[in-house]
C-alpha cells in the first residue's frame, strides 16, 4: 500500500514581521535573513500520521511529494530521516506561486505519473498564504473522496480510511473507501524526531527530482484571484507597563489600573 504525503516548503511561520521582505514586483513574501525554510507544520503532522499507519502495517510505502520553485534539500530530507521511503521534488520557477491551481495540477500529474496512491495526505493549510485550497483541487483533479481536518487517521481492512475530524466544539468520525485524500490538523500531534541511525541513512539517500516538463499530463485547470499588492499591517497600540515591587503587587496593581480605566466593570452588565 502506498501513502503519498504532500509537503510544502515554506518560510518559517515564526519569522518576525521585521525580518519579512515584500517583493512587490513578483508579489512574493521573502525573508531578509539567511534563515532556512521549514516544512509546513501541518504537512509534518501529515507525515506523522503516515508513520503511525505504517507502525500498524509494515507493508506501507511512504512517498513524500513536494512542488516548488526552489528547494532546500537538507530541510526537505528531514522527511527521509524520520522514515519516509522516498522524497520526490517537482521543481519549476512557475511553482513558486500563491496560486494553488498550478501547484495542485503539478501534484496531480506527479501522482498519476508515479502510479497513483492508496492514500494521499495533505496538511490543512500552508502557513505561507493560508489558502487551505490545494487539497480540494487535488481531490477534484484525481477524483478522490476528501476527508478534512483529521486529528486521527486509521485504515480498516486495508481498503477503507477512517478519520476523526475536528469541529469547533467536538469531533466527528468520517469514512471513505480508498484511494482517498485526507487533510490533517495540528491536534494530531507533532512529527517524531529522527534517531541517529535513521539520520545517517537519510544523509545518503537522494531525493528524486522531476522537472515540470517531464510530467506528461500537466495542465493548469484554472486560476485563483490575483495578488496585486502586499503590505505589512501597522499596529497602532503602545504598551503601558505596570511597575511594582514584586509579582503579587504587579497583579493587584494591574487590577486597580484596569478598574480605574473602566476596562473592567465588576457587577456591571453581563453577557447572557
Amino acid at each position: 500500500m502506498r501513502i503519498i504525503v504532500c509537503l510544502k516548503q515554506v518560510i518559517d511561520p515564526l519569522t518576525p514581521a521585521s525580518a519579512l521582505a515584500l517583493d512587490q514586483a513578483e508579489k512574493k513574501i521573502r525573508v531578509n535573513l539567511s534563515a532556512p525554510p521549514v516544512i509546513n507544520g501541518f504537512d509534518e503532522q501529515g507525515l506523522e500520521a503516515a508513520l503511525r499507519l505504517r507502525e500498524a502495517n509494515k507493508d506501507i510505502e511512504i512517498v513524500c511529494l513536494a512542488a516548488g520553485g526552489h528547494f532546500n534539500t537538507d530541510v526537505m530530507k528531514r522527511s527521509l530521516a524520520v522514515g519516509a521511503d522516498q522524497l520526490i521534488l517537482v521543481q519549476d520557477p512557475s511553482l513558486d506561486t500563491w496560486d494553488p491551481y498550478p501547484i495542485a495540477s503539478a501534484l496531480a500529474a506527479a501522482i498519476r505519473q508515479i502510479g497513483g496512491a492508496d492514500l494521499v495526505i495533505c496538511g490543512r493549510q500552508g502557513s505561507d498564504w493560508d489558502n487551505a485550497l490545494t487539497p480540494f483541487i487535488l481531490a477534484d483533479l484525481l477524483a478522490l473522496p476528501l476527508l478534512t481536518l483529521a486529528k486521527r487517521v486509521g485504515i480498516s481492512d486495508g481498503k477503507r480510511v477512517e478519520i476523526e475530524r475536528v469541529l469547533a466544539d467536538g469531533t466527528m468520525v468520517m469514512k471513505a473507501d480508498m484511494p482517498a485524500l485526507v487533510t490533517v490538523t495540528s491536534e494530531l500531534g507533532a512529527l517524531r524526531m529522527p534517531n541517529v541511525a535513521a539520520r545517517l541513512a537519510a544523509a545518503r539517500k537522494r531525493p528524486r527530482q522531476i522537472a515540470l516538463t517531464e510530467l506528461t499530463d500537466f495542465a493548469t485547470a484554472a486560476h485563483a484571484p490575483e495578488v496585486v499588492d502586499l503590505a505589512i499591517p501597522v499596529n497602532g497600540r503602545s504598551c503601558t507597563f505596570i511597575e511594582a515591587a514584586d509579582g503579587p503587587s504587579l497583579g493587584s496593581c494591574l487590577a486597580e489600573t484596569l478598574l480605574q480605566a473602566g476596562v473592567i466593570r465588576l457587577g456591571g452588565e453581563r453577557q447572557p
Binding site: 507597563f241 505596570i242 509579582g247 503579587p248 504587579l250 497583579g251 494591574l254
Partner: peptide
C-alpha cells in the same frame, strides 16, 4: 507589541493577586 497594558512577571505570582483584588 500589541498590548495596551503589560505586566512582565510570572503568572504564578501575578494572577492570584489579580484575582484577589477583583
Amino acid at each position: 507589541g500589541i498590548a495596551n497594558y503589560g505586566v512582565v512577571g510570572d503568572w504564578k505570582e501575578v494572577m492570584p493577586a489579580f484575582r484577589d483584588k477583583l
